[in-house]
Protein backbone atom coordinates (compact mmCIF):
# COMPACT_ATOMS: atom_id res chain seq x y z
CA UNK A 1 0.00 0.00 0.00
CA UNK A 2 1.53 3.23 -1.15
CA UNK A 3 0.11 5.45 1.52
CA UNK A 4 2.76 6.25 4.09
CA UNK A 5 0.26 7.29 6.68
CA UNK A 6 -1.35 3.86 6.62
CA UNK A 7 1.90 1.99 6.79
CA UNK A 8 2.96 3.92 9.88
CA UNK A 9 0.07 2.38 11.80
CA UNK A 10 0.99 -0.54 14.03
CA UNK A 11 -2.16 -2.51 13.17
CA UNK A 12 -1.63 -2.05 9.45
CA UNK A 13 -0.90 -5.70 8.81
CA UNK A 14 -3.88 -6.87 10.88
CA UNK A 15 -6.23 -4.60 8.92
CA UNK A 16 -5.20 -5.62 5.46
CA UNK A 17 -5.26 -9.30 6.36
CA UNK A 18 -8.58 -9.16 8.23
CA UNK A 19 -11.45 -10.86 6.39
CA UNK A 20 -14.82 -9.13 6.38
CA UNK A 21 -17.11 -10.02 9.29
CA UNK A 22 -19.92 -12.54 9.05
CA UNK A 23 -22.75 -13.36 11.43
CA UNK A 24 -22.81 -16.87 12.90
CA UNK A 25 -25.94 -18.96 12.40
CA UNK A 26 -26.35 -21.78 14.92
CA UNK A 27 -28.35 -23.76 12.40
CA UNK A 28 -31.04 -24.07 15.03
CA UNK A 29 -34.40 -22.58 15.93
CA UNK A 30 -32.78 -19.76 17.98
CA UNK A 31 -31.09 -18.22 14.96
CA UNK A 32 -33.92 -19.03 12.55
CA UNK A 33 -36.37 -17.04 14.67
CA UNK A 34 -33.95 -14.16 15.08
CA UNK A 35 -33.16 -13.94 11.40
CA UNK A 36 -36.83 -14.14 10.44
CA UNK A 37 -37.62 -11.28 12.79
CA UNK A 38 -34.83 -9.18 11.31
CA UNK A 39 -35.96 -9.82 7.74
CA UNK A 40 -39.60 -9.10 8.63
CA UNK A 41 -38.54 -5.90 10.34
CA UNK A 42 -36.41 -4.92 7.35
CA UNK A 43 -39.33 -5.56 5.01
CA UNK A 44 -41.60 -3.32 7.09
CA UNK A 45 -39.04 -0.54 7.28
CA UNK A 46 -38.99 -0.41 3.50
CA UNK A 47 -42.63 0.63 3.38
CA UNK A 48 -42.67 3.93 1.63
CA UNK A 49 -45.35 6.09 0.16
CA UNK A 50 -43.07 6.80 -2.75
CA UNK A 51 -42.87 3.18 -3.61
CA UNK A 52 -41.35 3.32 -7.03
CA UNK A 53 -37.74 2.99 -5.95
CA UNK A 54 -36.10 -0.36 -6.20
CA UNK A 55 -33.17 0.38 -3.93
CA UNK A 56 -34.03 1.22 -0.33
CA UNK A 57 -31.00 1.55 1.86
CA UNK A 58 -31.47 0.29 5.44
CA UNK A 59 -30.79 3.68 7.03
CA UNK A 60 -33.06 2.58 9.89
CA UNK A 61 -30.32 0.25 11.21
CA UNK A 62 -28.81 3.15 13.14
CA UNK A 63 -32.16 3.71 14.88
CA UNK A 64 -32.43 0.07 15.80
CA UNK A 65 -28.87 -0.31 17.13
CA UNK A 66 -26.24 2.05 18.47
CA UNK A 67 -22.74 1.93 17.07
CA UNK A 68 -20.15 0.74 19.59
CA UNK A 69 -18.15 -2.26 20.69
CA UNK A 70 -19.65 -5.71 20.31
CA UNK A 71 -17.94 -9.02 20.79
CA UNK A 72 -16.98 -11.41 17.99
CA UNK A 73 -18.02 -13.91 16.90
CA UNK A 74 -21.68 -12.97 17.12
CA UNK A 75 -24.74 -15.08 16.25
CA UNK A 76 -28.18 -14.03 15.01
CA UNK A 77 -29.85 -15.02 18.26
CA UNK A 78 -27.39 -12.84 20.19
CA UNK A 79 -27.35 -9.72 18.08
CA UNK A 80 -31.14 -9.22 18.05
CA UNK A 81 -30.98 -8.68 21.80
CA UNK A 82 -28.10 -6.21 21.64
CA UNK A 83 -28.30 -2.45 21.96
CA UNK A 84 -24.81 -1.80 20.63
CA UNK A 85 -23.20 -3.32 17.57
CA UNK A 86 -19.98 -2.59 15.73
CA UNK A 87 -19.59 -1.70 12.07
CA UNK A 88 -18.96 -5.33 11.09
CA UNK A 89 -22.41 -6.38 12.30
CA UNK A 90 -23.99 -3.30 10.74
CA UNK A 91 -22.41 -4.21 7.41
CA UNK A 92 -23.50 -7.85 7.63
CA UNK A 93 -27.09 -6.81 8.48
CA UNK A 94 -27.17 -4.29 5.63
CA UNK A 95 -26.08 -7.05 3.25
CA UNK A 96 -29.02 -9.16 4.43
CA UNK A 97 -31.43 -6.27 3.86
CA UNK A 98 -30.10 -5.49 0.37
CA UNK A 99 -30.04 -9.18 -0.59
CA UNK A 100 -33.67 -9.52 0.51
CA UNK A 101 -34.48 -6.68 -1.89
CA UNK A 102 -32.90 -8.67 -4.69
CA UNK A 103 -29.56 -6.86 -4.93
CA UNK A 104 -26.11 -8.41 -5.09
CA UNK A 105 -24.53 -7.19 -1.87
CA UNK A 106 -20.99 -8.05 -0.82
CA UNK A 107 -18.71 -7.22 2.09
CA UNK A 108 -16.37 -4.27 1.74
CA UNK A 109 -13.68 -2.94 4.02
CA UNK A 110 -12.22 0.52 4.18
CA UNK A 111 -9.37 2.43 5.74
CA UNK A 112 -10.42 5.93 6.69
CA UNK A 113 -8.42 8.94 7.76
CA UNK A 114 -9.20 10.65 11.08
CA UNK A 115 -7.23 12.83 13.45
CA UNK A 116 -5.56 11.44 16.59
CA UNK A 117 -7.99 13.30 18.89
CA UNK A 118 -10.87 11.34 17.43
CA UNK A 119 -9.14 8.03 17.55
CA UNK A 120 -8.24 8.56 21.21
CA UNK A 121 -11.92 8.96 22.05
CA UNK A 122 -12.84 5.81 20.17
CA UNK A 123 -10.12 3.88 21.91
CA UNK A 124 -11.66 5.00 25.20
CA UNK A 125 -15.13 3.99 24.05
CA UNK A 126 -13.89 0.54 23.11
CA UNK A 127 -12.19 0.04 26.48
CA UNK A 128 -15.46 0.42 28.39
CA UNK A 129 -17.39 -2.78 29.03
CA UNK A 130 -20.09 -3.30 26.41
CA UNK A 131 -23.55 -2.05 27.40
CA UNK A 132 -25.21 -5.02 25.80
CA UNK A 133 -27.35 -7.20 28.01
CA UNK A 134 -25.95 -10.67 28.28
CA UNK A 135 -28.57 -13.38 28.59
CA UNK A 136 -27.80 -16.19 31.05
CA UNK A 137 -26.54 -18.86 28.66
CA UNK A 138 -24.07 -16.42 27.17
CA UNK A 139 -22.51 -15.23 30.40
CA UNK A 140 -19.92 -18.00 30.55
CA UNK A 141 -18.60 -17.06 27.15
CA UNK A 142 -18.26 -13.39 28.05
CA UNK A 143 -14.62 -13.40 29.05
CA UNK A 144 -13.46 -15.10 25.98
CA UNK A 145 -15.47 -12.77 23.76
CA UNK A 146 -14.44 -9.37 25.06
CA UNK A 147 -10.86 -10.36 24.34
CA UNK A 148 -11.82 -10.94 20.77
CA UNK A 149 -12.28 -7.22 19.95
CA UNK A 150 -10.42 -6.35 16.79
CA UNK A 151 -7.87 -3.48 16.98
CA UNK A 152 -9.63 -1.36 14.39
CA UNK A 153 -8.48 2.01 15.69
CA UNK A 154 -5.06 3.30 14.67
CA UNK A 155 -3.51 6.65 15.32
CA UNK A 156 -4.68 8.52 12.23
CA UNK A 157 -6.32 5.69 10.33
CA UNK A 158 -9.22 3.44 11.24
CA UNK A 159 -10.48 0.21 9.82
CA UNK A 160 -14.21 0.20 8.88
CA UNK A 161 -16.61 -2.29 7.34
CA UNK A 162 -19.04 -1.37 4.59
CA UNK A 163 -21.33 -2.95 2.10
CA UNK A 164 -20.80 -2.88 -1.66
CA UNK A 165 -23.61 -3.33 -4.17
CA UNK A 166 -23.03 -4.78 -7.59
CA UNK A 167 -25.17 -2.69 -9.91
CA UNK A 168 -25.91 -2.84 -13.63
CA UNK A 169 -22.79 -2.85 -15.82
CA UNK A 170 -20.55 -4.01 -12.94
CA UNK A 171 -20.78 -0.62 -11.32
CA UNK A 172 -20.08 -0.58 -7.59
CA UNK A 173 -22.00 1.40 -4.99
CA UNK A 174 -20.36 1.62 -1.56
CA UNK A 175 -22.75 2.01 1.35
CA UNK A 176 -21.71 2.97 4.86
CA UNK A 177 -24.13 0.71 6.70
CA UNK A 178 -23.28 2.22 10.08
CA UNK A 179 -24.12 5.82 9.22
CA UNK A 180 -26.55 5.32 6.35
CA UNK A 181 -24.81 7.15 3.51
CA UNK A 182 -23.21 6.40 0.17
CA UNK A 183 -19.61 7.05 -0.72
CA UNK A 184 -18.95 8.85 -3.97
CA UNK A 185 -15.91 8.28 -6.16
CA UNK A 186 -15.06 12.00 -5.99
CA UNK A 187 -11.67 12.33 -4.42
CA UNK A 188 -11.99 13.17 -0.77
CA UNK A 189 -9.49 14.44 1.73
CA UNK A 190 -9.68 15.37 5.37
CA UNK A 191 -11.93 14.09 8.10
CA UNK A 192 -13.23 10.62 7.33
CA UNK A 193 -11.73 10.50 3.83
CA UNK A 194 -11.38 7.10 2.20
CA UNK A 195 -7.75 5.95 1.90
CA UNK A 196 -8.23 2.42 0.65
CA UNK A 197 -11.04 -0.02 -0.13
CA UNK A 198 -11.35 -3.77 -0.53
CA UNK A 199 -14.35 -5.77 -1.72
CA UNK A 200 -15.35 -9.41 -1.62
CA UNK A 201 -17.30 -9.39 -4.84
CA UNK A 202 -16.36 -12.38 -7.01
CA UNK A 203 -16.58 -10.22 -10.14
CA UNK A 204 -14.69 -7.08 -11.21
CA UNK A 205 -16.34 -3.89 -10.06
CA UNK A 206 -15.96 -0.38 -11.44
CA UNK A 207 -16.14 2.69 -9.25
CA UNK A 208 -15.21 6.05 -10.77
CA UNK A 209 -11.93 5.33 -12.54
CA UNK A 210 -11.00 2.47 -10.18
CA UNK A 211 -11.44 -1.27 -10.72
CA UNK A 212 -11.86 -3.69 -7.83
CA UNK A 213 -11.11 -7.40 -7.97
CA UNK A 214 -11.98 -9.86 -5.21
CA UNK A 215 -10.03 -9.29 -2.02
CA UNK A 216 -7.64 -6.71 -3.39
CA UNK A 217 -7.00 -3.49 -1.47
CA UNK A 218 -7.19 -0.45 -3.73
CA UNK A 219 -5.55 2.87 -2.85
CA UNK A 220 -7.70 5.91 -3.42
Amino acid sequence: MALDVVKKESSFQAWVEHPASHIVHHDARCCEEARMWFLGYARSMQISALSRYELRAPTWLSQLFTWGPSAWPIAWCELVKMKTLDCGVFAALAREAFTAQGFEAHPAQALLSFNPTCTTHWKGLWKKPPKNPLPEPLKDQKKEKTHATFPWIGNEVVYHELCVLEMEGNQAKFYDSTWGNWFTPDQETGFGALLALRTECPRLLHWGDKIFSYGEWIDL
Partner: peptide, 24 residues
Protein backbone atom coordinates in the same frame (compact mmCIF):
# COMPACT_ATOMS: atom_id res chain seq x y z
CA UNK B 1 -55.30 8.22 5.32
CA UNK B 2 -52.04 6.49 4.40
CA UNK B 3 -52.66 6.36 0.66
CA UNK B 4 -53.45 3.34 -1.47
CA UNK B 5 -49.86 2.78 -2.65
CA UNK B 6 -48.51 2.78 0.86
CA UNK B 7 -51.36 0.49 1.92
CA UNK B 8 -50.36 -2.07 -0.71
CA UNK B 9 -46.74 -1.89 0.45
CA UNK B 10 -47.82 -2.36 4.05
CA UNK B 11 -49.93 -5.34 2.98
CA UNK B 12 -46.91 -6.96 1.32
CA UNK B 13 -44.94 -6.51 4.51
CA UNK B 14 -47.82 -7.92 6.57
CA UNK B 15 -48.00 -11.02 4.38
CA UNK B 16 -44.25 -11.48 4.76
CA UNK B 17 -44.64 -11.56 8.56
CA UNK B 18 -47.55 -13.99 8.33
CA UNK B 19 -45.55 -16.29 6.11
CA UNK B 20 -42.59 -16.21 8.52
CA UNK B 21 -44.78 -16.90 11.54
CA UNK B 22 -46.51 -19.73 9.72
CA UNK B 23 -43.15 -21.37 8.98
CA UNK B 24 -41.65 -20.85 12.42
Amino acid sequence: SIGLKRWIEALESFLYWCKGLEQL
